[in-house]
């Protein structure tokens, strides 16, 4: 089967999902800027949606998968809002949004 079939089929979707997830995690872990972390999270969520949609089409051919993707999108939006509010608060408190500084929770 050709590369095209592969890429546009389930394998392609899952491959893209995996790469997006990995990059999302790396962003979350190694971005110094807390907004970067936020971006990483968004990437992760999208990777999940891709998987849902892909399986919705290739496996169950039912709407449920898409409903889930829909809910993920909604939650992601809410989460982004709240996260940015926290970042603003952080900035106002600490004059910085460096993820490394926010370590009040240490032992």
């Amino acid at each position: 089967m050709s590369f095209l079939d592969w890429a546009t089929g389930l394998h392609g979707y899952l491959f893209v999902g995996t790469i997006l997830a990995t990059l999302g995690i790396i962003a979350v872990v190694y971005r110094r800027n807390s907004i970067g972390v936020l971006l990483g999270i968004e990437l992760l969520l999208n990777a999940a949606s891709i998987n849902f949609i892909a399986f919705s089409k290739f496996r169950t051919a039912a709407i449920d998968g898409q409903i889930f993707a829909l809910f993920i999108i909604i939650i992601a939006a809410a989460e982004a809002a709240v996260a940015l509010a926290i970042i603003l608060r952080l900035y106002r408190l600490r004059e910085t949004i460096d993820a490394g500084e926010a370590n009040l929770m240490r032992n």
Binding site: I25, V28, V29, Y30, R31, V37, A99, G100, A102, N103, L104, M105, R106, N107
Partner: peptide
């Protein structure tokens, strides 16, 4: 173990990874 509780969230994620 205390040495691991650096407070930085990201390190927690690494560990869980």
């Amino acid at each position: 173990l205390r040495r691991f509780q650096t407070g930085r969230v990201q390190q927690y994620v690494i560990l869980s990874l």
